[in-house]
Simulated assay, not measured.
Amino acid sequence: MEQDSIKQSLKLFIVLSRAHRSLNDIVNKYIAERGLNPTEFAVLELLYHKGDQPLQQIGGKILLASGSITYVVDKLEQKEYLRRVACKSDRRVTFAQITDKGKEFIESVFPEHERKIDELMNELSPEEKDTAIELLKRVGKNAAGQ
């Protein structure tokens, strides 16, 4: 019995990994065609939807190593999509802030980005999406707890 469980778990892992890769390949291609890499897009999207963010906290919010944040922020700053802003109350803290040019960029690409993701996910019914969300949350929480 245990061997059947192991085989099934491995199969689920492989199917999930392949689905993730296929979805990411499509979404990342769309982002690349607009001149950004996926990490740059994630930072810009975070700033657009959540407002100014301390540079030290961005990595944790988009699952990126903190050492890479400086490089990504530099690139977005060169493109004039964000600026660094010193914290008035704590000189050790610097915020990333989206610029008007960055907002215009996100507003021009995000609706199509959302539509593409919706199109990819619409293989599932609304009920199936809810079930998948709940099941994957459980798996993720279990993994995080180990």
Rank of each mutant, 00 (worst) to 15 (best):
M1C: 03
M1T: 02
M1K: 03
E2K: 10
Q3M: 14
D4I: 01
Q8R: 08
Q8N: 08
L10H: 04
I14D: 01
R18N: 12
D25F: 01
D25M: 08
V27H: 05
N28Y: 13
I31W: 05
I31T: 03
N37R: 09
P38V: 07
P38G: 08
V43R: 03
L44R: 02
L46Q: 03
Y48K: 04
P54Y: 01
L55Y: 09
Q56Y: 05
I58Q: 03
L63Y: 13
L63V: 14
L63S: 11
S66C: 10
S66D: 13
S66Q: 11
I69P: 04
T70W: 02
T70V: 15
D74P: 10
K75M: 14
Q78Y: 10
Q78S: 14
K79R: 09
L82H: 09
S89W: 05
D90C: 10
R92T: 10
V93N: 02
F95R: 00
A96L: 11
Q97K: 14
I98L: 08
I98P: 00
T99E: 09
K103E: 03
E104C: 07
I106C: 02
E107T: 02
E107Q: 11
S108N: 11
F110A: 04
H113Y: 13
K116R: 15
K116C: 06
D118Q: 09
D118N: 09
N122F: 12
E123C: 12
E123A: 14
D130R: 15
I133R: 15
I133A: 00
R138Y: 05
R138P: 02
V139D: 07
V139A: 09
K141Y: 04
K141E: 14
A144L: 13
G145N: 13
